[in-house]
Protein backbone atom coordinates (compact mmCIF):
# COMPACT_ATOMS: atom_id res chain seq x y z
CA UNK A 1 0.00 0.00 0.00
CA UNK A 2 1.13 3.49 -0.79
CA UNK A 3 1.00 6.64 1.23
CA UNK A 4 -1.91 8.89 0.41
CA UNK A 5 -2.90 12.51 0.86
CA UNK A 6 -5.37 13.21 3.62
CA UNK A 7 -7.01 16.60 4.17
CA UNK A 8 -8.58 17.88 7.37
CA UNK A 9 -8.79 21.03 9.38
CA UNK A 10 -6.79 21.05 12.60
CA UNK A 11 -7.85 23.70 15.09
CA UNK A 12 -9.31 25.70 12.21
CA UNK A 13 -6.26 25.40 9.97
CA UNK A 14 -6.40 23.51 6.64
CA UNK A 15 -4.00 20.56 6.46
CA UNK A 16 -3.07 18.31 3.55
CA UNK A 17 -0.59 15.65 4.55
CA UNK A 18 1.03 12.63 2.94
CA UNK A 19 0.24 9.80 5.30
CA UNK A 20 1.56 6.24 5.42
CA UNK A 21 -1.15 3.60 5.38
CA UNK A 22 -2.36 2.61 8.83
CA UNK A 23 -0.62 5.46 10.59
CA UNK A 24 -2.43 6.39 13.76
CA UNK A 25 -3.97 9.83 14.03
CA UNK A 26 -2.18 10.45 17.33
CA UNK A 27 1.18 10.03 15.59
CA UNK A 28 0.17 12.24 12.68
CA UNK A 29 -0.96 14.99 15.04
CA UNK A 30 2.14 14.81 17.20
CA UNK A 31 4.85 14.12 14.65
CA UNK A 32 3.54 15.67 11.42
CA UNK A 33 1.50 18.56 12.82
CA UNK A 34 3.54 19.38 15.94
CA UNK A 35 0.42 19.10 18.08
CA UNK A 36 2.20 17.34 20.93
CA UNK A 37 -0.36 18.38 23.53
CA UNK A 38 -2.26 15.20 22.59
CA UNK A 39 -0.59 12.36 24.52
CA UNK A 40 -0.10 8.72 23.74
CA UNK A 41 -0.61 6.91 27.03
CA UNK A 42 -1.40 3.36 26.03
CA UNK A 43 -1.88 2.98 22.29
CA UNK A 44 -4.78 0.62 22.98
CA UNK A 45 -7.71 2.92 23.68
CA UNK A 46 -7.69 2.21 27.40
CA UNK A 47 -6.41 5.46 28.97
CA UNK A 48 -8.00 8.41 27.14
CA UNK A 49 -4.87 10.60 27.10
CA UNK A 50 -5.10 10.90 23.30
CA UNK A 51 -8.70 12.18 23.24
CA UNK A 52 -9.39 14.72 20.47
CA UNK A 53 -12.56 15.99 18.83
CA UNK A 54 -13.44 14.75 15.38
CA UNK A 55 -16.35 16.81 14.04
CA UNK A 56 -17.26 17.69 17.61
CA UNK A 57 -17.17 14.14 18.97
CA UNK A 58 -14.55 13.03 21.51
CA UNK A 59 -12.55 10.18 20.02
CA UNK A 60 -9.38 8.26 20.83
CA UNK A 61 -6.72 9.27 18.32
CA UNK A 62 -4.56 6.24 19.11
CA UNK A 63 -7.20 3.93 17.63
CA UNK A 64 -7.93 5.94 14.49
CA UNK A 65 -6.04 5.33 11.26
CA UNK A 66 -5.42 8.83 9.95
CA UNK A 67 -6.90 8.01 6.51
CA UNK A 68 -10.32 7.86 8.17
CA UNK A 69 -10.33 11.51 9.20
CA UNK A 70 -10.14 12.81 5.62
CA UNK A 71 -12.49 15.79 5.35
CA UNK A 72 -12.99 16.05 9.12
CA UNK A 73 -12.69 18.94 11.48
CA UNK A 74 -10.24 18.06 14.24
CA UNK A 75 -9.78 19.98 17.47
CA UNK A 76 -6.95 19.20 19.87
CA UNK A 77 -6.00 20.76 23.20
CA UNK A 78 -4.03 23.40 21.28
CA UNK A 79 -7.31 24.54 19.70
CA UNK A 80 -9.19 24.95 22.97
CA UNK A 81 -7.56 28.30 23.70
CA UNK A 82 -9.35 30.96 21.60
CA UNK A 83 -7.71 34.31 20.91
CA UNK A 84 -5.17 33.53 23.63
CA UNK A 85 -7.96 33.28 26.20
CA UNK A 86 -8.31 30.09 28.21
CA UNK A 87 -11.53 28.14 27.92
CA UNK A 88 -13.66 28.06 31.09
CA UNK A 89 -12.69 24.43 31.55
CA UNK A 90 -9.00 25.32 31.51
CA UNK A 91 -9.62 28.11 34.00
CA UNK A 92 -11.56 25.69 36.18
CA UNK A 93 -8.77 23.09 36.05
CA UNK A 94 -6.42 25.82 37.33
CA UNK A 95 -8.78 27.03 40.03
CA UNK A 96 -9.60 23.53 41.28
CA UNK A 97 -5.95 22.39 41.19
CA UNK A 98 -7.01 19.54 38.94
CA UNK A 99 -3.58 18.79 37.48
CA UNK A 100 -0.55 17.13 38.94
CA UNK A 101 1.80 15.51 36.44
CA UNK A 102 -0.38 16.91 33.66
CA UNK A 103 -0.05 13.97 31.31
CA UNK A 104 -3.76 13.06 31.36
CA UNK A 105 -4.92 16.69 31.44
CA UNK A 106 -5.35 17.30 27.71
CA UNK A 107 -7.43 14.15 27.32
CA UNK A 108 -9.50 15.01 30.37
CA UNK A 109 -10.23 18.50 29.07
CA UNK A 110 -11.16 17.22 25.62
CA UNK A 111 -13.49 14.59 27.12
CA UNK A 112 -15.06 17.18 29.42
CA UNK A 113 -15.39 19.77 26.66
CA UNK A 114 -17.25 17.31 24.45
CA UNK A 115 -19.71 16.91 27.30
CA UNK A 116 -20.14 20.63 28.00
CA UNK A 117 -20.47 21.41 24.29
CA UNK A 118 -23.66 19.37 24.16
CA UNK A 119 -24.77 19.57 27.81
CA UNK A 120 -23.62 22.83 29.41
CA UNK A 121 -25.12 22.02 32.81
CA UNK A 122 -24.47 18.33 33.39
CA UNK A 123 -25.14 16.43 36.58
CA UNK A 124 -22.23 15.05 38.60
CA UNK A 125 -23.18 11.62 37.31
CA UNK A 126 -22.99 12.84 33.71
CA UNK A 127 -19.54 14.30 34.36
CA UNK A 128 -18.39 11.02 35.89
CA UNK A 129 -19.63 9.13 32.86
CA UNK A 130 -17.95 11.53 30.45
CA UNK A 131 -14.61 11.08 32.24
CA UNK A 132 -14.88 7.36 32.78
CA UNK A 133 -12.71 6.48 29.78
CA UNK A 134 -9.84 8.66 30.99
CA UNK A 135 -7.21 7.43 33.44
CA UNK A 136 -5.54 9.73 35.96
CA UNK A 137 -2.99 8.22 38.31
CA UNK A 138 -2.20 11.34 40.37
CA UNK A 139 -5.26 13.29 41.41
CA UNK A 140 -7.82 10.75 42.54
CA UNK A 141 -10.30 12.28 40.03
CA UNK A 142 -12.18 14.38 42.59
CA UNK A 143 -10.50 17.71 41.62
CA UNK A 144 -11.14 16.94 37.95
CA UNK A 145 -14.83 16.26 38.53
CA UNK A 146 -14.99 19.44 40.62
CA UNK A 147 -13.33 21.42 37.82
CA UNK A 148 -15.81 20.25 35.19
CA UNK A 149 -18.75 21.07 37.47
CA UNK A 150 -17.22 24.46 38.27
CA UNK A 151 -16.80 25.19 34.56
CA UNK A 152 -20.43 24.27 33.98
CA UNK A 153 -21.45 26.61 36.77
CA UNK A 154 -19.46 29.43 35.16
CA UNK A 155 -21.08 28.73 31.79
CA UNK A 156 -24.51 28.88 33.39
CA UNK A 157 -23.82 32.40 34.66
CA UNK A 158 -22.73 33.66 31.27
CA UNK A 159 -24.99 35.20 28.64
CA UNK A 160 -25.76 32.66 25.93
CA UNK A 161 -23.75 34.51 23.29
CA UNK A 162 -20.60 34.45 25.38
CA UNK A 163 -21.06 30.78 26.23
CA UNK A 164 -21.20 29.87 22.56
CA UNK A 165 -17.89 31.64 21.86
Amino acid sequence: MKSSYVSFTLNGEEKELLIEPGRRLVDVLREQCGATGTKNGCGQGSCGACTVHIDGVAMLSCLLPAELVDGSEIVTIEGVVRNRVLHVLQEAFLAQAATQCGFCTAGMIMAAKALLDCDPSPSRQAVIEALSGNVCRCTGYEPIIAAVLAAAATLAKRPAAAAAA
Binding site: G37, T38, E78, V81, F93, A97, T99, G102
Partner: peptide
Protein backbone atom coordinates in the same frame (compact mmCIF):
# COMPACT_ATOMS: atom_id res chain seq x y z
CA UNK B 1 -0.83 27.78 42.33
CA UNK B 2 1.21 25.05 40.65
CA UNK B 3 3.71 26.80 38.42
CA UNK B 4 3.31 24.37 35.53
CA UNK B 5 -0.49 24.14 35.71
CA UNK B 6 -1.04 26.65 32.92
CA UNK B 7 1.12 24.71 30.52
CA UNK B 8 -0.60 21.48 31.59
CA UNK B 9 -4.09 22.75 30.74
CA UNK B 10 -2.99 24.17 27.40
CA UNK B 11 -1.02 21.11 26.34
CA UNK B 12 2.20 23.11 26.22
CA UNK B 13 4.16 21.14 28.84
CA UNK B 14 6.99 19.31 27.13
CA UNK B 15 7.56 15.71 28.20
Amino acid sequence: PRIDAHSHVTGATRY
